[in-house]
């Protein structure tokens, strides 16, 4: 039985969330909301507070201050009925070594009041050929698919994913993104942490960047960190080699360049800062050297 008014509010509501580890402040009064059906990505360097934040939302950790509501309830005090509406995709744990894929999925289906059909789900995450393989014999990417299957088997209204595509090859990553988009389209609210900026850009409706236990910025990937208004790099082949200019008016600059050269500028590129550029700037990494050269986002920072 859902609380009244549950369907109108945001899926997740966080106000003044504070977390201490002993004397250390891990989260400094953070605020955010996630609407129903939204895909929300949490980015940040290791140790920034991503996992802590998500674990508080999942109900695994208590907090020292603030209010947290997920589907209208305080996760740390929530009951099994709330749990049945939440899905958590954890990093591969490998505890099922001696069970096969089908046994594991059927086993988890038993826990939920309205579980998906295990065989259909195995098909959907692309493990149909491996349904009788022991979990310990799966490749890294296949194990992640199994993790995902266990996270969504109960048809969650809110799904948490912790670095979901680590270990995927590019094509399975795209399949996976499609699966996530499909879930979001069908109304599932999705919160994911990731180290892959391309993943955040491809999937997320909004992105939050957490550094040192504070939210530095929160917004759609296209405008994060003032990315839409930030200087754009225009470069072209001049008589003495590659020339490039930082400008906030790239269209005007290109028109002027055209007039000045009396025709096409050879090798013209107009490069807006990628999500990775603004992200690295925000977390304080030195991006001056890389900004001009940065190709499309998707070059990944390695996870620990």
């Amino acid at each position: 039985m859902r609380p009244l008014g549950d369907d109108t509010g945001p899926a997740i509501e966080v106000r003044g969330l504070r977390k201490l580890y002993g004397q250390t402040v891990a989260l400094h009064d953070i605020d955010f909301e996630v609407s129903k059906g939204e895909i929300f990505a949490v980015l940040g360097p290791n140790g920034a507070g991503k996992t802590t934040t998500v674990e508080i939302l999942e109900g695994f950790r208590p907090r020292e201050g603030g209010t947290v509501k997920v589907l209208g309830e305080d996760p740390f005090r929530a009951d099994e009925e709330w749990r049945a509406r939440i899905g958590v995709v954890l990093q591969t744990t490998g505890e099922f070594e001696d069970l096969n894929v089908r046994e594991v999925v059927r086993h988890f289906a038993r826990y939920y009041p309205d579980a998906q059909d295990p065989d259909e789900l195995i098909e959907r995450v692309g493990l149909a050929e491996k349904r009788n393989a022991r979990a310990s014999k799966l490749s890294g990417g296949q194990q992640r698919r199994l993790d995902v299957a266990l996270g969504i088997i109960g048809r969650p209204e809110v799904l948490f994913l912790d670095e979901p595509t680590t270990g995927f090859d590019p094509s399975s990553r795209r399949d996976f993104w499609q699966l996530i988009r499909d879930l979001a389209t069908s109304g599932t609210t999705i919160v994911l942490t990731t180290h892959y900026l391309e993943e955040a850009e491809q999937l997320a409706d909004r992105v939050a960047v957490i550094v040192g236990g504070r939210i530095l910025d929160i917004g759609v990937p296209q405008t994060l960190g003032g990315r839409d208004t930030e200087a754009t790099v225009v470069s072209w082949m001049g008589p003495d080699g590659l020339e490039s200019v930082h400008t906030t008016a790239p269209t005007k600059f290109a028109a002027d360049l055209h007039a000045r050269l009396g025709g096409e500028a050879p090798g013209l590129t107009v490069h807006r800062p990628s999500l990775e550029d603004v992200y690295l700037q925000m977390i304080g990494a030195d991006t001056a050297a890389t900004a001009a050269l940065a190709s499309a986002a998707g070059v990944t920072t390695e996870d620990s």
Binding site: E80, I86, V88, L90, T93, E95, Y111, Y112, L150
Partner: peptide
């Protein structure tokens, strides 16, 4: 101890299993 360290206990705790 191994289940806990690998995260298997957390995975179970994340489900509505009593």
């Amino acid at each position: 101890a191994i289940e806990r360290d690998r995260g298997g206990l957390k995975r179970i705790a994340a489900t509505p299993m009593p």
